[in-house]
Design a protein around this nucleic acid. Structure first.
Lengths: 102, 102
DNA sequence: TTGACATGCCGTACTTTTACTGCATAAAGG
DNA sequence: CCTTTATGCAGTAAAAGTACGGCATGTCAA
């Protein structure tokens, strides 16, 4: 696993807005930009501009966490968690000191 | 798991310099600030100022990833990965789509 | 063709992060 | 006492991250 890839994945996960988007996309895939915006207001009461959400989705896209499929003029976003992501996310586990009670 | 805590942990892990420090501390615990600096130069050939390393260690400390023990006038840093950290690191796993070959 | 819709790119403002220099403080040793 | 050693704090500067408005482009449908 390359440093660059780990950077992208951890950075993508280090923002609560993006984690909320991930959670939202997991419940309903293939959402457009506007659907994500609308859901943010409807479910969390957080009104974010189109550009802001677009930027967050771009970060997730660069980390390959969302898959893009164009349907006509609509760009749909779906969650795409791969083995590579799981490997990256569990990077810390190899440093867990085992032993101790608990 | 609170958003604030997840933020701190993922942010702490999203920098390759900090990941290198974690790796270093896992091999040799109870290192002082200067030892981490020296090891950075010796093992990776990266010369970082004392203050820069200090700041990185502070980020790891705020995420509770390192434990501080004072020995005389020396502040020693050791890795301290808890169940909470593991839980945070595996945050992404609950979104993994199972199924598919592989 | 025209209008409405969805996205993309450019620029701005504010905040945070990263890396650094310099100075101050406190403890141990000669 | 004075020097060395280890840390802490303040301040600076460049870069990146976050959030936004405006304008342009492309597409679907009436």
């Amino acid at each position: 696993m390359q440093d660059d890839q780990l950077d992208k994945i951890f950075k993508a996960l280090s923002d609560s807005t993006r984690r909320r988007i991930i959670d939202r996309l997991s419940k309903q895939p293939a959402q457009s930009l506007f659907e994500v915006c609308a859901a943010s207001v409807a479910e969390d009461g957080i009104a974010l501009s189109r550009q802001t959400v677009s930027q967050h989705l771009a970060v997730l896209e660069k980390a390959n966490l969302v898959e893009i499929i164009w349907k006509g003029r609509t760009k749909t976003h779906s969650l795409n968690i791969t083995e590579g992501h799981i490997e990256a996310a569990t990077w810390l586990m190899k440093y867990k000191q085992n032993g101790e009670e608990e």
